[in-house]
């Protein structure tokens, strides 16, 4: 136990240095994100993530949002287990035809108002996989999309900025 505490103390808080390598600084993005949440969603944003057929690269980077460097929870953003608890749907693609019905069902299960972000080049337009007998292509071909974060996969900093953009646009609209 002492060893654990010693390691925790020695590690310290690593969340700060994350600001150094993101442009604009991650802290700035985070603070704007927090402000947008205060205006729009009573300080908290619940995200439901759905992999609608990705290669799992996007999932690795979305996961990283929870690591101590990005620690997205400190801005009031958390990932929830059910679409019924979610304000925002983060969808990675391409949407495989075998996931098409499940994705629609998840979208339908969300309370309104609801936001959708298509993540990655595949979520944007099908990416490397395009449209085929097995793939519907981008997320927008299946459910309405409010924003797109491109990249293969997008970095955690790009994901944070993408979430912020969609919230700022949404916050500018009447509730």
């Amino acid at each position: 136990m002492l060893r654990t505490l010693y390691k925790i103390a020695r590690t310290g808080v690593v969340s700060e240095p994350a600001a150094k390598d993101a442009a604009p600084a991650l802290e700035v993005v985070g603070e704007r994100l927090r402000a947008a949440l205060v205006r729009r969603l009573s300080r908290s944003l619940a995200i439901r993530q759905v992999d609608a057929g990705s290669c799992n690269g996007c999932e690795l980077e979305i996961h990283a949002l929870d690591n101590p460097y990005y620690a997205i929870e400190r801005y009031g953003v958390r990932f929830v287990a059910s679409p019924r608890h979610a304000d925002l749907l983060l969808v990675t693609g391409p949407v495989s035809r075998h996931m098409e019905a499940a994705l629609r069902a998840v979208y339908e299960a969300m309370p309104e108002p609801r936001l959708v972000i298509a993540v990655g080049d595949c979520g944007a337009d099908g990416g490397e996989f395009g449209v085929s007998y097995a793939s519907c292509g981008g997320v927008a071909s299946v459910i309405p999309v409010d924003g797109v974060v491109r990249g293969c996969p997008p970095t955690p900093a790009e994901l944070m900025r993408g979430i912020l953009e969609v919230l700022e646009i949404a916050a500018g609209q009447p509730k």
């Binding site: 992999d51 690269g57 097995a134």
Partner: peptide
């Protein structure tokens, strides 16, 4: 559920294109 036709998509690609697909 995530079947996206990778084997079919490979047909007709050049070497670079196949490497890109293999990476995904």
């Amino acid at each position: 559920y995530t079947h996206k036709g990778i084997e079919k998509l490979a047909e007709g690609r050049d070497a670079e294109g196949l490497a890109r697909l293999a990476g995904r």
